[in-house]
Write a protein that binds this DNA or RNA. Structure first.
Lengths: 248, 248
DNA sequence: CGCGATTTGTGCACATCTTCACAAGCGCCT
DNA sequence: AGGCGCTTGTGAAGATGTGCACAAATCGCG
């Protein structure tokens, strides 16, 4: 009797949205393994989360589980794919075909999840015309024309930091409202445009912090050469990461 | 009078830790631009966050700001680098030199932030011996020997999902306690080992959700072909992303 | 048909994170 | 020296996220 208005996309907690793709991946795995239904416990384990959290997440989308049985795998896949907007396949523009751009262009994981890289762009004349994974690299100048042909809603920026803002501006200008930014810099975009950032070096630095913390907790004498830092630390061995171990 | 025990690495909020690398990048930029000091407002803008949040974050490390003036850029860089454990340069093992592994091996951003890729590994005999960005690809079998020579504390997994768990086990076996996982799967590791996951497809799916949400909020008639979903949506145009526009 | 085993969905308490608003501290100018 | 303007550091309130524990619902079986 809650009448929770499932399908109200605006009221999904951001944290839940961030986990849905993970559930989706786990569900595809279970489907391939021949499971028709799965319990919250089983799916939670496969996705690496707590079962209570999973149930709460699914309940937000007006869930389709059956008490005493579990969730229908195929139905749940449909539901999540609908909510994530994966039922209409999205065209992606990838700008910057350097080291990382090459890898992204060839990354199979995009296609298998409903994303189609519609075009590659770069500003370096030496790269123009090159064919990567079956796609030709166009000059960024051609973005407006190609964006009009294909219906591009998402842009991926894999350029050096110095070029990223200009690229973002051009993407926004042709109507892109979602940007995935691999360049290590802050992008300024108009309201209504979403930017997600992935910085590989940042992830390593976070790991480094935890290494440092663990080392400091273990041996009471910091051998680091830095000066100031008063070294009073609690010998607390908490694990702390953002992802926990999961028993298979 | 708070005697907050700065330097107590264990009591830094995780959310703060995740932002420190971003501050660090912004600070390096400011230092190069010739700034000796910076206000919380200025640094916050450069890092793409709220100034109050930034001040609270910095206060957690027993901050070194001066009221009425701001923060000493060089000192703050030293502080953050110390806390993140970047003062001792860390050796990283990269496993999997496929598409993505190649890109990571050549990514300049690692070296510039104190990380050294100490060795490349793969299981594919065809790849062994290849030289990528000055590093030779070794067979994963040699991991124990090389890990003993270099002092490797962090492992990066860029293999297909099927191989990732086995690689993780081997990394853990040679004493690695921090893992950055690019494979789209959940890793099971013993307590005390930190795993961070980066899944490029997940980021796109989150963007896709926001695209879907924005589209649904705009036009009241969902053209999607999926059946069930009751379509009562609130016409709320909130922006919602995880990163906001920043006026330069 | 009724009962017990099982599993979902959720109210509630707790933890963490964010934001506001302002007192305390600092430097500069007179 | 004293006052003024600026900026930090932080208490408190609000928002968001998490996890427990249990009632409600469903299935299978006797």
């Amino acid at each position: 009797m809650s009448q929770h208005r499932p399908g109200g996309l605006s009221e999904l907690p951001e944290a839940t949205v961030a986990r849905l793709p993970e559930y989706l991946r786990a569900l595809h795995g279970l489907a391939e393994a021949g499971h028709d239904t799965v319990s919250s416990e089983g799916l939670a384990t496969a996705a690496g989360v707590n079962s209570a959290k999973l149930r709460k997440d699914l309940s937000h989308l007006g869930s389709y589980g059956t008490r005493g049985v579990g969730y229908d795998v195929a139905l749940l896949i449909e539901q999540i794919e609908y909510v994530l907007g994966l039922t209409q396949h999205r065209a992606v523009a990838l700008v910057g075909v350097g080291n990382l751009g090459h890898a992204l262009a060839g990354y199979a994981g995009f296609a298998t999840r409903g994303f189609r890289i519609a075009a590659l762009f770069d500003a370096d004349p030496a790269q123009i015309g090159e064919v990567i994974s079956g796609l030709t690299v166009h000059h960024i100048r051609e973005l407006p024309r190609i964006a009009a042909e294909e219906s591009i809603s998402i842009g991926v920026i894999a350029t050096p930091a110095g070029a990223a803002q200009a690229v973002a501006d051009q993407l926004v200008a042709v109507g892109v409202t979602g940007i995935l930014n691999f360049a290590p810099c802050v992008l300024s975009v108009p309201e209504g445009v979403d930017v997600r950032k992935v910085d590989l070096a940042i992830e390593l630095q976070i790991l480094s912090f935890h290494e440092h913390r663990k080392a400091a907790a273990g041996s009471a004498g910091p051998t680091a050469s830095l000066t100031a830092l008063p070294g009073g630390m609690a010998g607390n061995g908490a694990s702390g990461g953002n992802q926990e171990a999961v028993g298979s």
